[in-house]
Computed example of a mutant assay.
Amino acid sequence: MGQDMTSYLDGLLQADYLTYWDYVHLETLLSLQNPRTAYPDELIFITYHQITELYFKLVKHELTQIGYHPALTADFFTERMERINRYFAILEQSFAIMVEGMDKDQFLKFRMALLPSSGFQSVQFRHIEIMSTHFRNLLSPTAPIPTDAPLDQLYEFIYWKQGATELATQQKTLTLKQFEKKYGDSLVRLATEYQSRNLYACWLALREKGEQTDALARELRDFDQRVNVRWKLSHLRSAVRYLHKTPEAVAATGGTNWQRYLPPVEQQRFFFPDLWTPDELQNWGRAVGDGQ
């Protein structure tokens, strides 16, 4: 820069050393867990969800690198998918904290103070879905609209809205109304931005050039199954653990229809349909293992 190096060295001598707690903003981070009740296990609940959102942030970081790579190669694509699958592997394993790690009686009490909020309102998970596949693959199978309609019209028939209907009236829950008011427009903008940048579009572009690889296909299949089968089965186990009882299941905090919304067999949701055989698609969510 044409400046005197010794002046900068003198300045370094006067500066404080960087500490770990300043680098990770430890005090700020630990101040963000603010339970709404006095039940001890609510701290587990809120901390776990914050950790999950941080992993979602890392997933989105990798998805952005893939979608915006100026000259995407199969090797780069595969390496980033391996990272994403590691993040989701940790999330899958960590769900035991939710399934086994809280007192059921405490949960059923403190959850009432959280109404109408719900994990359904995790916008980062919706971002991941939109950044992963063509928008038409996220529509309800009964959507009465052509899949080439404008995205703002297609958004009205995105599959997860069916899971946020009141069980008795079949009307939108307050949880969904709040979510749409805050994020609806931004989700449509993201879908527009990623029409040609989502993972499926990137895979198809490589395949058209004859640059697809078996290794990349395996990582994409793994990701598809982790997000659309294993992650949702983990949620289902948690819901059954805390909300299932005889004769009638307990409604989720946001009033979401978890019995129909969470099971992968009910959703039949997949990001990369041409990476699966017809038989695998037919039995989606019924068996979890290598390649279904």
Rank of each mutant, 00 (worst) to 15 (best):
M112E: 15
R80C: 01
L43N: 06
K232W: 07
S122K: 04
D290P: 01
Q50V: 04
L26C: 05
S186E: 15
Y20F: 14
P247A: 13
E79D: 13
H61Q: 15
Y20P: 03
D290Y: 08
K60I: 12
E219L: 00
E266K: 11
H61S: 11
M131K: 10
I84L: 11
F45C: 03
L13N: 12
V188K: 07
G101P: 04
R36V: 15
K57E: 10
G119H: 13
S31D: 08
E42C: 13
K232A: 03
Q212L: 01
Y183K: 05
K60T: 12
F110N: 12
A15S: 13
I97E: 02
T28A: 13
P264W: 08
W160L: 08
Y87G: 04
S122M: 12
E219H: 02
Y8G: 01
A252Y: 07
N257F: 04
W21G: 08
L176G: 08
H69G: 02
A287L: 07
S140H: 10
G285E: 04
T28K: 13
V229F: 00
R269E: 02
R86C: 05
T256Y: 04
G289R: 05
I130P: 03
D152P: 02
I158Y: 05
A113T: 06
E79A: 14
S94R: 06
W258V: 04
T47D: 05
D214Y: 03
V288A: 07
L174W: 09
M81C: 06
D105F: 02
N137E: 14
T47Q: 06
D103L: 04
L281D: 01
G255A: 05
K177E: 15
Q162G: 15
T256L: 11
F56V: 09
Q225N: 02
L243Q: 15
F272M: 05
Q292A: 08
P264L: 11
A149F: 00
M98R: 10
P141S: 09
D16S: 11
E208D: 15
Q170W: 14
A74M: 04
I130D: 02
E248T: 12
Q178L: 14
K60D: 10
L91C: 04
L43E: 11
F110Y: 11
K172R: 13
Y194T: 09
A249R: 07
L9P: 00
E180V: 15
G285F: 01
E193F: 03
H69F: 06
D214L: 12
Y8K: 14
L204I: 14
F272R: 03
E27Q: 14
A74Q: 01
T175Q: 11
L138N: 01
Y242M: 09
F76W: 02
R221Y: 07
F157D: 01
M98Q: 01
R207Y: 00
F270C: 10
L275P: 00
I51C: 05
L190M: 06
D214N: 07
D148C: 05
F95N: 07
L18K: 05
K57H: 08
K60M: 15
